[in-house]
Nucleic acid binder design. Sequence first.
DNA 1: GCGGTTCCTTGATGTAGATCAAGTCGAAGA
DNA 2: TCTTCGACTTGATCTACATCAAGGAACCGC
Lengths: 245, 245
Amino acid sequence: MSFSPLFILHPSAFILYASCMQTAAIDVIGRCPLFRGVKGPHLQLLESMAKLQKFDAGTPVFRQGDECPGVYIVAEGLVRIFKLAPNGKEHVLHLVSPGQTFAEVAAIGGFNCPANAQSIADSVVVLLPTEPFMNALHTHHELCLQIMTGMCLWVRSLVGLLEDITLRDAMGRVAKLLGDLAQSSHGVVQLPAMKKHMASHLNLTSETLSRTLRRLSESGVIESDNQTLRVLDAEQLKAIAVGVG
Amino acid sequence: MSFSPLFILHPSAFILYASCMQTAAIDVIGRCPLFRGVKGPHLQLLESMAKLQKFDAGTPVFRQGDECPGVYIVAEGLVRIFKLAPNGKEHVLHLVSPGQTFAEVAAIGGFNCPANAQSIADSVVVLLPTEPFMNALHTHHELCLQIMTGMCLWVRSLVGLLEDITLRDAMGRVAKLLGDLAQSSHGVVQLPAMKKHMASHLNLTSETLSRTLRRLSESGVIESDNQTLRVLDAEQLKAIAVGVG
DNA sequence: GCGGTTCCTTGATGTAGATCAAGTCGAAGA
DNA sequence: TCTTCGACTTGATCTACATCAAGGAACCGC
């Protein structure tokens, strides 16, 4: 695995100043689950510090070891959070879709970015810079409580991922992922990212993911058409995910 | 892997009422890193709700799926947090030593225990029950901020574990663990728990851990005497942990 | 249109670590 | 003292997955 040229160039983000897109920022924050429950004045405080940024597909947002710029909220597109091992192997920790946040933990905990963030689609993100954000956190108790419960959910999903990887085999992990993705969209799954990134998230190679999906197709549990999958037998899929498969 | 009889019996904890051990509770809370910075009145508030409990080695503290009793602080002993897969495989998420906490996330997030907790040495723990604890959190901003930074550290260590497991091989994981443990104790490592539990934490079988330790001994990097290990070549150990091995 | 990428698939082969199966050792209990 | 039991070690074997290698398909820019 090697660095892509895009990754070496590190193009600076194209920053859309508040003046031209103010309305968007407040919408994005308001729609973000982490900030659900944040009311009028607090919401406006957050909005006032918000910076809208745009990243073309393939450009990095920050790198492992950078000082943490603040809390990011994805408005459009997709951001990939991943860690690089010294040997070049990489692991996708999180695929951040619109409405979700990233780098909250580093911002609040006051440490440097523990992983890389790369935009993998043309993306628009809202940045709440560390310093004003931390000030807000120190002055507004409500906000603090809100963020805390949000963080609990994040921990839970992390533990879930850890358990997937340690307790399930490849087939189980894929089945669980498909089950989760299909739940909201009534059986039809649009893979959110390239298969190689999905594979890395599950700690698999893309080859193994490919083979696993084929086996699921062959046994009639799913139907596969490129990036679009259809769950044919949800019961069976669940059984496989639980490990009874 | 089967349930141990101890696990099925679920003996009730021997509860030491505040009257007889009040002084201990406040010390335990005060010494706990998660609550460092909590000052006089808040500390006393926590103390007033604290319940001291004692668990013999081998007894469960709670199980996966139980309603979360509250935040636990280990005063003495050792508690193992682990998850069971339907097929019986288990993974040790955390070995909680004195001064550390567990179940904070479930208590604050308001969901059920996502894993099992079992005392694996004669242990004394302090329980801060969910309801009064959450009340305290809602009324005391300082406490809230404090806990939040504590949670950030926990997330970081979780991500660290995840990356260990996904990016390192068995040798790398073991070397990293030994390096971390040796750091504080100047080269001499007392394994905190049984080797099979340490192995599970690293997502290895005890056989593989055993073989890996032997290989490290044979190459002169460590010296092994049962539960006690001595790091002979810290440089080399670090190199192996980083993957330059 | 036509090379050049990059992603994905599929097959052949390799291997780290799991599993299975004996043993050793030390602690607890009769 | 002898017996039992569980933790740990060690060796032999197995296997799920990675790795390597070779196309195919979609998507560029020219």
